[in-house]
């Protein structure tokens, strides 16, 4: 089981802030493929990976990163702090 979180417009497109997912995905990219296959709203949210960022256990990471041992995955657009 893995906690998947969504922020900003990713959250709005998918329609929820977080969910627990049962997955065997080896990498972030595999998880995204799984999610996209679920429903059109996921496909819409993950249509353009260039406009997305991913954090694994609250550290910025990359789409080819492995998910082994990861408890929390977060997807969001580029950050706009400051």
């Amino acid at each position: 089981m893995i906690d998947v979180m969504y922020f900003a417009w990713v959250r709005e497109r998918i329609g929820l802030p977080r969910e627990r997912i049962e997955t065997d995905a080896a990498t972030v990219a595999d998880l995204i493929d799984e999610l996209k296959a679920r429903e059109p709203r996921y496909e819409m949210a993950f249509a353009d990976l260039k406009s997305l960022r991913v954090a694994l256990d609250q550290e910025l990471s990359s789409f080819d990163a492995p998910l082994a041992g990861v408890r929390e995955v977060a997807f969001f657009p580029p950050m706009t702090g400051g």
Partner: peptide
């Protein structure tokens, strides 16, 4: 670093709707 590496997202709410502020290439 706060601009591009701290996980905040800004949304501007206006009279004719709302919009997420896009990250600027200059900031990166």
């Amino acid at each position: 670093y706060l601009k591009s590496r701290a996980p905040f997202w800004k949304k501007e709410i206006g009279a004719d709707g709302s919009e997420w502020v896009a990250a600027r290439d200059e900031d990166e």
